[in-house]
Write a protein that binds this DNA or RNA. Structure first.
Length: 489
DNA sequence: CGCATTTGACCAGCGC
DNA sequence: GCGCTGGTCAAATGCG
């Protein structure tokens, strides 16, 4: 992708004829350099190349071509005819000169692109950091509000009870990479010390706590929410564009199928983990539960789903319990939202979060066939047609013990992740509290180089693109946990 | 030989 | 306190 842009840019440059104007755009890089110096440098470049390529030509020839080349004409081949008294060999050499100039320009442009890429990375990083702070501020604000509103009437078993638990977890429990016990930093530390003598865990916990006290940002409950994806697959795991390493397997209670534990190995210390388990009732259904946030650039095939699940997790963590969501959806006072939800086919059956669930979990059910429906005009204009492609299904509540908040079957099993992204984004958009999360997701897609082609093809070719570091999700700590990737098999 | 997977042991949280 | 369960570790094993 980036190569394409680079090539296009270079081709455009060549077509523009600007390369014949000496180093016209080298001003950008060396603003303090005088025109004389630039011209001189241009000549030197040519002389050096010539010296290397063809010795017999004298400097006068070279200077002549340099002057002509700098004069502004944009027909390189015309140079041969315009030179008096030159032989056909001279013409060939001058053509070679032009080619060499082009090559030099290409090299310079490659270099420039590299610099720009680096600059873009820095900007993205700053942007992500800022975004994370905004999310943190919003989250803190919302949680403080909820605590004030409900501290007199704590309701066990309600989603609010779960909400109230969160600050406690934030302060006294590590964000637990291992879903409970450990922080991402802890994991990183362990990985870094792999092979060294095992240290007592209590010491590790101490150091972790110390780090958390020093870094309040690390206390974000980034690992408190999970995103589950239910999809039909015969493979042992879904192909989500990331590289995973299995580190454990357990027999879970109430399910004859073992649960496998994977950790992301695309980067050292990446805290993202996933659990894969087949459904007991229907073994063709594979449930993949993601948790954590990638701390490394993602391949293009992984970016879309990462944004989706990040947004979903952000929805859970932004202070919006499912009850709030329910309220938002059903409230007549919710102007645009309610009007939208009257047309939204799967909003009426959103399940509620229960305190029985150890973590707020949002489930994307991809197992049911799609059902055609008509999007409301305002939705189309706001979110685009992709958000309402005819693969959206009605929400269904799962009657399992986890009492998960369910996003309904939004997509068919072979639906492109982009559609998933858009649909989930649309669902999330309905709660005002999700704005920050939504912004994070959208910016992730836009800024992360999300491209539809990649996503759409990757979902079909079923190949892990783990080695390609193309699109950059950037360091995405701004996104709440459960930043994941996914594509169906 | 290096890396990934397997698998039994271990640990922490939770309910009784 | 005890047992159950979920989750992780790490040595053993398999594979290319």
């Amino acid at each position: 992708m980036e190569e394409h842009i680079q090539d296009r840019r270079e081709i455009a440059f060549l077509h523009s004829g600007e390369f014949l104007h000496g180093d016209s755009d080298s001003k950008d890089h060396q603003p303090n350099e005088s025109p004389v110096e630039r011209h001189h440098e241009s000549s030197i470049k040519e002389v050096d190349f010539f010296a290397a390529k063809s010795q017999p030509f004298d400097l006068g020839h070279v200077r002549t071509t340099t002057i002509v080349g700098s004069s502004g004409f944009n027909d390189g081949l015309g140079l041969v005819n315009s030179c008096h008294g030159t032989s056909s060999n001279d013409g060939d050499d001058k053509t070679k000169t032009q080619i060499s100039r082009l090559k030099l320009e290409l090299e310079r442009l490659h270099e420039e692109n590299h610099k720009l890429k680096h600059l873009l990375d820095e900007v993205s990083e700053s942007y992500n950091d800022l975004q994370r702070r905004v999310l943190l501020a919003r989250q803190t604000q919302v949680e403080g509000l909820h605590h004030k509103q409900h501290e007199d009437v704590p309701q066990a078993g309600s989603s609010q009870a779960l909400e109230n638990r969160r600050p406690k977890d934030m302060n006294h429990e590590t964000p637990a990479t291992t879903l409970k016990r450990r922080s991402p930093d802890d994991v990183y530390g362990r990985d870094m010390h792999r092979g060294s003598p095992k240290t007592p865990r209590i010491d590790q916990n101490k150091s972790t706590n110390h780090e958390e006290q020093q870094n309040p940002h690390d206390q974000l409950p980034y690992r408190k929410a999970r995103v589950s994806v239910r999809a039909r697959s015969d493979a042992t795991t879904v192909n989500d564009g990331c590289q995973w390493r299995k580190y454990g397997q357990k027999m879970a209670k109430g399910n004859p199928c073992p649960r496998a534990y994977y950790r992301c190995t695309m980067a050292v210390g990446c805290p993202v983990r996933k659990q894969v388990q087949r459904c007991a009732e229907d073994t063709t259904i594979l449930t993949t539960t993601y948790e954590g946030n990638h701390n490394h650039p993602l391949p293009p095939s992984a970016t879309a789903m990462a944004a989706t699940t990040s947004a979903a997790a952000a929805m859970l963590l932004s202070g919006s319990s499912s009850s709030n969501l329910h309220q938002t959806l059903s409230s007549p006072s919710a102007t645009s939202s309610s009007s939208f939800y009257h047309n939204f086919p799967y909003t009426s059956t959103i399940a509620t979060l229960s305190a029985s669930a150890p973590f707020p979990t949002i489930t994307l059910d991809l197992t049911n066939p799609p059902r055609p429906l008509q999007p409301p005009p305002q939705f189309l204009s706001q979110y685009g047609p992709a958000a309402f492609l005819p693969n959206a299904n009605q929400i269904r509540s799962m009657n399992n013990n986890n009492q998960q908040l369910l996003i309904p079957n939004l997509f068919g099993p072979q639906a492109p992740p982009r559609e998933m992204v858009d649909s989930v984004r649309a669902a999330i958009a309905m709660d005002p509290n999700f704005t920050a999360a939504l912004a994070a997701a959208i910016s992730n897609i836009i800024g992360g180089g999300n491209n539809d082609n990649n996503n759409n093809t990757d979902i079909n070719d079923n190949k892990v693109d783990a080695k390609s570091g193309g699109s950059s999700n950037g360091d995405s700590p701004q996104l709440p946990q459960s930043c994941t990737t996914f594509s169906t098999n």
